Structures are given as C-alpha cells and as structure tokens.
Amino acid sequence: MSDPEIEPELPRGIALAWGIAAHPQRGPKRELSLERIVDTAVEIADEGGLAAVSMSSVASRLGFTPMSLYRYVSAKEDLLLLMNEQAMGVPTERVREAADWREALRVWCHDQLEMYRRHAWMLDTTMSTAVTTPNNMAWLDAGLGALAQSGLTEHEKVAACLMMMAQVRWQAQIERGYRSQAEALGGDTEALDRQNASVLRMLVSEAEFPYLRRAVDAGVFHPDTEGDPFTFALHRSLDGIEKYAAERPAAPEPEPVDPPEVVGDKRVKEAIKARREAEKTLRDARKREREALQHARERAVRSPK
C-alpha cells in the first residue's frame, strides 16, 4: 500500500500571494498592511528601479520602521515576488474578446509588453517561482486559452506560450536599453537614432561584415525605416504556429478535469460569479485609466512647451 501523497509546504512568499499565509497578530494595525507595503514598493521601483527598493526605503516612505514591515513580509525575496505579482496584474478582457486564436495570442503578447513598459524593473526579477502565483498563472492560462482552438496538444500550447513570452521579454529589454540611451541625451530620440546610425556606418565595414553592411546601406537601422521588427517577428512566429497546427492532426478535446458534482457545487458557482464581477470591475478601471491617460496626453500636446 503506497503512502498517501503529502502536500508540500508552500514558501511564505507564495502563500502570501495566494492569501493563505498567517497575518501578524501584533504590530501596527489599520495604518499598515501587506497591500500598502507592496504598493509602496512597486511605486518606488517604478520611480527608481529595483535597486531603489529595500525594506528600509519602503518603511521610510510609509513612515514606519523596517522592523514593522518584517511582521508582514519576512524577507526581501518575498517582497520582490509580491511586487512582481502586483505589477503583473491580470490579463485584459481583450484576449478573450479576440476573433480567433491568432489575434488572441497577438493581443496577449502586446498586453504583456505594455506591462513591461509600465514596470521596466520587472525585467530584473527572476522568474523561477513567478508562475506559481495567481496573476502569473492567470496570464499563462489566458495564453493557453487563446490556443484552445489551435489544434495543438497541451504540451505544444505551453511551449508556444513560453516562446512568445520570451520574445516579449526580449523586446522589452531592447526598449529599456533604448530609453536609457535616450535619457543620456536628454530624451532626444532623434539625436540617438542619428548617433546609432552613424556609429554603424563607421564601424560596419563591407570587408569584415558584408551582410550586415548590406543591411546598413539599405537603411534598415535608420530611424525613418518603415516596419517594426517586433511586429514582424511576432507575426512570423504566429505564422509558424499556424502552419505547424495546420499540418498535424488536431488534438482530441480534453476531458473535463472536475466531475459535475464539483463544478455544480454552490460555493464554486458563487466563487466563479464573484471572480467574473471582479474581472468586470477591473476592466472598467482599466478603461477609466486609458481614458485618463488619453486626456492627459491631449492636455500635454495642447500645453505650451
């Protein structure tokens, strides 16, 4: 007779992300909470990068001592995991509303890229345990949902999602490097583009790099060149997935994981309803955020320099 399966003990950071870790029994109440700590840490990282985040810097901004924070989050590693989880958020409803799996996956990738643009410091965090937190699972689930009608097997769907996620992360790395260079020139992106093009023309010789020189001479790296490399690569990746799926037999529909008595459970139904209402609230909030950003951009354009 085999031993019953033993449930593993969750690391505290993951348990906090799922809301199942014990909360402090003593210490500052009302004025301080795990949510405030994480929100403040994300705010600091957005302003000054991940290096600016420490238990001391977060505590100082909140007006508490570092020891007060340790009652809520016992290690900086746990704080970083929770910051990643909070900044990640949940997938937008646009993914589910897409016309087909290809468009859904394209939207899924672009939404992730926007996330990195808002929180570039996330590129400096490790991803070893990120997939075990709720929001990260939700993003992977949305990607797999986008591929539900693609005809791929479950293994192939996961592999395709991981490939696209890596492509998005690499694009975000490139964009961050570009922004950093532009900031060194006072934010003058046109000057940066001219500088980069001049450097390539000077250093790339036909004798040493014949094919790269051909691309330089064709104006591929000139700022006025039409076309977006990320969009091109993204669509070619989607082409590859689509071609592969079309040439292989469709995978059988998976059997439901849970029996009817589980799916029909009253508490399960109530939880699903609550989740859908929360998602709608989030969609409305994101809509208001987009509208506010658009109005702010319009005011910035109208205001004198």
Rank of each mutant, 00 (worst) to 15 (best):
R71P: 00
L238Y: 04
R248L: 03
A22E: 15
A98S: 09
A142K: 02
M164G: 01
V42L: 07
A274M: 10
Y72M: 10
T231Q: 15
V131A: 10
E97L: 12
V262F: 03
V301F: 14
T65L: 10
W170I: 13
W121M: 00
P260L: 15
M122P: 09
L123C: 07
V199W: 15
E43L: 10
A87G: 00
E31K: 13
L34R: 14
A285H: 06
E270N: 14
D193M: 09
Q167Y: 08
A98I: 05
L80M: 07
R36M: 12
C109M: 11
E77F: 11
A250G: 14
H222D: 08
L105Y: 05
F221T: 09
A285W: 08
L152T: 03
D193I: 06
R12I: 07
R118G: 02
R61F: 14
Q294W: 12
Y244F: 10
H222C: 02
S237A: 09
W139K: 01
R299Y: 07
R96I: 12
N84G: 05
R30F: 14
A59P: 01
A22M: 15
L203F: 15
L32C: 03
E175D: 15
P91I: 00
R169T: 03
P66L: 07
A45L: 02
M137A: 13
R94I: 02
A292Q: 11
W121V: 01
R71Y: 13
D46A: 03
G27F: 05
A146M: 05
W121Y: 11
